[in-house]
Structure formats: structure tokens, C-alpha cells
Amino acid sequence: MSRTILVVDDSLSMRQMVSHTLEQAGYAVKAAVNGREGLEVAQANAVDLVVTDVNMPEMDGIALVRALRAEPNHRYTPILVLTTESTDTKKAEGKAAGATGWLVKPFSPDQLLKVVTKVLP
């Protein structure tokens, strides 16, 4: 059974790139355009990993991480945060909210897959 990854990003090109890369690698992908939609998808589906952008309208990535950690089903679901800032504050913020790991943009498909395999149970 292929594992399901939820991709949350408001940017279409990013969503496509990340989804395509993951699908090529054999994962099933669900996509959402902001944190709120991402949370809804995660509540309604079994998701093995969440990959989320930080800066999004409606509900940002950090808020999504917090909300997911409050869900009994997703207390331990690995979450990767895609950030543009390589500064430590954003990473720390993500970590503090309960993210499992992060990836700094720009990244290559290979880097993405490497990090995904790293955190997938």
C-alpha cells in the first residue's frame, strides 16, 4: 500500500512540483491550498506525512502544525515545514509548534525525497 502524503501550499507551481516529485516516487498525494483546507483533509483522511508551506492565507503553516498536534489522530504524524528563511527563528518556531523537520527553499526534488524518507515512519 502506498503511503499518503498531504501537501499544503498556496503556490500552484510549488504544489505541483512537490506533488509530482512525490507521486513519481510512488507516494499517494493529497493537496490543499492553505492551512485550514489542509487541516480538513487531514481530519477526513489517513495521512502518513504532512508537507506544508509556512506563509499561506487563511491559516499559515505554523498554525496548521499546532492544530494537527491537537488532533488525536495526528499527534505523532510527521510534519515537514517548507520555509524560505534559512534563519533559525523560523525553524525554531516550526519545531516549537511540533513540526518533525523542515526543508529550506529552494530545494531539488532529490532533496525533498531525501527528507521525506527521513521522517516517514
Partner: peptide, 14 residues
């Protein structure tokens, strides 16, 4: 360690 979804087994496999 386990509270943010980290899977230690994965670390060692990697």
C-alpha cells in the same frame, strides 16, 4: 524525542 513525530528507527536506517 517522539513527541513531534520523529521516528528514531528511520534515523538509524538512514
Amino acid at each position: 524525542l517522539l513527541k513531534d513525530g520523529t521516528n528514531p528507527l528511520g534515523l538509524w536506517t538512514e
